[in-house]
Structure formats: structure tokens, C-alpha cells
Design a protein around this nucleic acid. Structure first.
Lengths: 340, 340
DNA sequence: TTGTATGCGTTATCAT
DNA sequence: ATGATAACGCATACAA
């Protein structure tokens, strides 16, 4: 059933039927009711392909997720997207997922911009000095970045958490507890968020006159296995750490395994602080949370990012939007004073 | 730049330019080169909204992910979709993600079918006697299910792993090792896959004349926390299990935590077998795998499901496709003979 | 080998 | 308050 058929059935013009369904004010209320009834009776819905051509809007947002060589899908993306999806469905948008291979990146973005299957995109996992940002500014496609570049941060729209502050505060707490050998297990330091976190860690050490030790810093995809390997390695070091600062819950699961394997007890023998993205499959809850953590819901971030983007699309003239989320430090069972 | 402008630039008709770009054989090779050069020079790409209306195909596949009340995004979906995405990009398709609230399910599927923004869908997480299957058959929208209904399995297309067989074999191994008190920590038994796994477990017990004990069976979302809670509870039972059978790696991380908290050692004191979906963030590898496991790559399943669906779309007359994946049992460090 | 004319199913403009 | 007609940007049947 299409608009033409429906209008013939009703003895009205396509125009009137279309207007009735789209709630144009000028249409007679009785007519509107009659049209809507017939539409739902015949299960009519406007063809999206035609609507999109006619209006020039795709009513679709693209999420571009970089897939690196290891082709790993980070659970954090899923959660962020689940949040964004709520905003889209409220406002009649659909979500297109694009898993871009890093090597063909520029052409992928150019294609997205010119083919017109989306009205805007959310950019995930920005790198240090990410070339995508200037590219997207050139292309003129509305976008919001989950994260930031190092500079020029008010010239485009982004949402981010305060990575430096969170890791500064976490490191400070460990130092206050007497720890001086603190091992950082960080995300991939090609990515901007990881660099900011490292800076927070290093700044806190410096403020407390503790010299940083490169042997106690790891960087990589935050998988369980990588967390395990890094922590196991660190614990074998002649100057083994008494505390770990881990950039994700999933990575911390590997750290926890390494600690147990070394015959140590988390919280008493060894302290651990994580950053907790509040993933639904990895709740850090309970009477006392398992891990002391800086927390920030990545699902909320996704929803807010989506709303920002839709606002920008609705009002293309407006200035870029920026939002910096807090990540408060919450105490759990995994931290304690250093053992003498 | 659109087709009209490009064709004027070239002094050709839109038709010829269109044919040249779409590799129609009749167009002069020299003309084709000239057209393609101009197209890439001007960064021209056909407008997807127009192409879709003209061809009647969306070149897009929908993935419908049920979000239940807890609104949880399962990492397994992400991995499956990452696999599917590879097939789509090879064949020029895009991926639309639809996170459907369970309460409005029927209307969501009707809308997907009638609005025409996708050419087919992949259905995730089929339930027991899932009403979506007959609905989709009525609607006539091509679909592939990841999993199966209980019956009529050759009347629609699906890809699934042999859940019953996998869990039968795993249970059998535990029994061979002398375990009789085996605790099942299963997925949500509203879902079909979980029911099949339970059947494998129960069948093996029955074949070995071991009586099943409802106190040793848990069912729910396979989060770390739920795995922990279930295992902790089981270990406090007066007839505590000597082995766990866990339906996912993530759930098993919680089980592992519970075992450690109880002061037990996995592998020697307590055996654990998991089903391993081979998620990238949760590799069960190493010289000796951490967990003894039945394994089946859900990413591969996603890729194969996508290929099946595209084949069905290309040839609508063909009979439904079915594919049953094996999940071989591989030995790891988490199993051993029962302690006397 | 190229061009003309029509159609895809809507929305939007301009009349009435 | 309703209708006729054009426009969106392509693909394709038919003509040459």
C-alpha cells in the first residue's frame, strides 16, 4: 500500500492524505481522522526511500567505529551506541553502523559525506592529532566526537569525560594511602583519551615528587588478556608495584587474575583503582563496590552525544557544542594502605 | 555535484554517465574512462537516497536487537555484528542497528517491513516459541535468525551452533572426571539457546544416571555480577558443587571470582567448563587455555549469517538456508578430577 | 554506442 | 480546506 493507492481508496488527493498524516494544521480534523484510520487499517507507512529523497534528509545518524588490524569490537562502543539509540528513537532517527578499516579512513569519510545516507555522524575513538577532524570540518557533514583532539577544542562539537582529572585524583588517593610504586595499565596511547589519563597520572606523581618509572606503564587494547599479561609482568619486576591504576573494568579483570595468581589479595596486599564506564555486563556494585573507581556512564555519554548531534542538525548555524563529564572517585574494596 | 551537473560538464547525457559509472558493458571504453576520471576528480558519488528510490532497494540490512527492561547491551551482539559488517562492506551494503524495546516488538517489525529502509533483517536472541518468526514470515521481509525456534526449523533461514551437543559433551567430560554435583550457570531460559544448552546438560546427567538438582541450576543475563552471585550462592549450598558449567566467558569471570573468594583453586579444587564465543576482548588463549571450553566464534557466525541473508535477497525464490555450527570441546586449565 | 522519456513514492509549491 | 503539478536524483525501458 502506497500513498497513491491510499488516496484513491479515500477519494482524496495524495497531497491531502500526506498532509493529514504529517499533522499539517490546515487539514480538516474530520478528514484527518478518516485518513489516519484508513492508514492504520491498511498498515500504511510512508516509504522511507521516497521520503528521504523528497525531503533531502536521511533521518539517519552514522556511527563510525574504527576497526584496527586486530578487528576488535570494544564493548564500550556497544554501550555508547545503546545510549545514543534511545535518543534517536525518541526523535524518529535511525542508526547506521559503519565499521571503518583504519587504512581506508579518509575515503570512507568522504563517501559518507557525499552519498547522503546519513545526516550526521558520531566519531568514535579520536586519536592524538586526529586527521579526521579537519577532514570533517572541510566536508561540512555535522558531527560530534566522543572525545577530543588535543587542541582547537571549541571549533567542533564533542563530549568527553575529564580523563586527566579522574586519573589525577585516583593517583593522588593511592599516594595518600602510601603507595609510591603505582603501575598504570592504560588504553592504547595512540588514542587521545589514554594520553589524557596518562597525563593525570604523571602530574599527580610529579606533584608529590614521586619519580615516574617507565617500567610501570603499560598501554594497549584493554582486553582481559592484556590486563593479565601487563599485571603479571609488572608483579615480577624487581621493583614490583603495590598498586595498579587500570583504565577499564575489563582490563582490571585480567589484573585481578594476575594478582590472585601471584598469591596476593586485592585490597590488602595490593591496591587497584579502575576507571568504570558502568557497562551493564560489568557492574561494579554491591554493598561495597568491588573496585575503587572513577565512574562515568558511557551509555549516558552516548545519549547526550546523540542529542547534541540532533540539535546541531536541526540548527546548522549554531556554535559547536562541548560537554565535559565528571568522573567522581568512589571507594570500593580494592584499595587500602600500602603494606610495609 | 550530482549526476546532472556531472553530465553537463562532460557533454554527455545522464544516462551515459550513469551507465559508465555502473559498468554497463555497452559503453565505449574511452568514454567510461573519461567519465570515471571526471567523477573522481569532482568527488562525485551517486546520492544514495535517489538510488534507493530508483532501484527499490535500500542496500541496507537491519539488525534488530531486543533490549529488555534492564536495557543491557550484550558484548556478544557487538562481536556478531562486527562479523556481519565485513560481509556487508564486501557487497556494498550498509548496516542499520535497531534496538527494539520488547514491549512494542510487533509494531517495530511491521514498521521495518513497510517503511523500506532495509532489504532484510537479522533477528537476534530468539526466544522459546518466538512469535517474531511467524510474523516475519507473514510480512515477507527476508530474514535470518541467529538461533532457532524449537520447531519448524526448515521453514525459515537460521544459523545456530549445536548448543545441546556442546553442553552434553561438556557435562559428559565433567562426569568422566568423577563430578556428580555439577552446577549449571545458564543464560536467560526465556531464550532458545539457553533451553537447548540446559537440555544437553540434563540429557548427559540422565544418561549417566545422575539425578538433576534444581538447586544447582541458575539462569539469567550472563553478566559478571550474575555469574558471581550464582556461584557464590551455589558454593554455600550444603551440597556444594564440585564443578561449574557456565554459558559464557563473561559469566565465568564472575564464577572465577566467587571460587577465589571461597578460598578454592580453579582446576584443582573446582572444575569449570565454559562456552567460549571467542570474543576479541576475552580471549581464552595462552599456552594452556585458562578455561576448558566449548568454542564457536560468534564473529564468524555473524559473517556467515550476513552472507546467507544477502544470498536470499539476491535470489528470493530459493529455499530457506540452515547452518548448524559445531562447538568443539577444548581442554584448558580449569578442569581436573574430582577431589575426594 | 548514445540519448530521450518515464518512473520510483514521497514532499513542497502554487493554485483554487 | 483541498487539489494539480513539480521536484528530489537517480535507473531503466525504449528509441535511434
Amino acid at each position: 500500500m502506497n500513498l497513491k493507492q491510499l488516496s484513491i481508496q479515500l477519494g482524496l488527493s495524495q497531497t491531502t492524505v500526506s498532509r493529514a498524516l504529517n499533522n499539517y494544521p490546515e487539514v480538516n480534523e474530520h478528514t484527518r481522522q478518516r485518513v489516519k484510520l484508513a492508514a492504520s487499517k491498511h498498515n500504511y507507512r510512508p516509504n522511507a526511500r521516497a521520503t528521504r529523497l523528497a525531503t533531502g534528509r536521511a533521518m539517519t545518524i552514522g556511527h563510525v567505529i574504527p576497526m584496527n588490524s586486530s578487528e576488535v569490537f570494544n564493548p564500550i562502543f556497544g554501550e555508547f551506541i545503546a545510549g545514543a539509540s534511545q535518543a534517536y528513537s525518541r526523535r524518529g532517527y535511525e542508526l547506521l553502523l559503519n565499521m571503518a578499516k583504519e587504512d581506508a579512513e579518509e575515503s570512507i569519510y568522504r563517501e559518507i559525506a557525499s552519498k547522503g545516507s546519513v545526516d550526521g555522524i558520531i566519531v568514535h575513538a579520536p586519536r592524538v592529532n586526529d586527521s579526521r577532524i579537519t577532514l570533517l570540518q572541510e566536508l561540512g557533514l555535522p558531527f560530534v566526537i566522543h572525545g577530543r583532539d588535543s587542541s582547537n577544542s571549541s571549533e567542533y562539537s564533542w563530549i568527553d569525560m575529564n580523563n586527566r582529572q579522574a586519573f589525577y585524583q585516583a593517583t593522588k588517593l593511592l599516594i595518600d594511602l602510601g603507595h609510591t610504586k603505582i603501575c598504570l595499565i592504560n588504553g592504547d596511547e595512540k588514542l587521545n583519551f589514554a594520553v589524557r589519563r596518562k597525563k593525570g597520572y604523571l602530574d599527580a606523581l610529579e606533584d608529590e615528587k614521586i619519580s615516574a618509572n617507565a617500567d610501570l606503564m603499560y598501554s594497549g587494547d584493554l582486553t582481559e588478556a592484556n590486563g593479565y599479561t601487563a599485571a603479571t609482568h609488572a608483579l615480577k619486576h624487581r621493583n614490583a608495584p603495590t598498586a595498579f591504576l587500570v583504565a577499564s573494568y575489563v582490563g582490571a579483570l585480567g589484573v585481578r587474575r594476575a594478582i590472585h595468581n601471584a598469591g596476593l589479595e586485592m585490597g590488602s596486599d595490593i591496591s587497584v583503582i579502575i576507571h568504570d564506564d558502568e557497562l551493564a555486563y560489568f557492574h561494579n556494585d554491591g554493598d561495597i563496590a568491588q573496585f575503587t573507581a572513577t565512574r562515568s556512564s558511557v551509555k549516558d555519554a552516548g545519549e547526550r552525544a546523540a542529542m547534541m548531534l540532533l540539535d546541531i542538525i536541526d540548527d546548522p548555524g549554531k556554535a559547536p557544542l562541548n560537554e565535559l563529564l565528571k568522573a567522581p572517585l568512589t571507594l570500593g574494596a580494592s584499595t587500602g594502605p600500602v603494606k610495609k
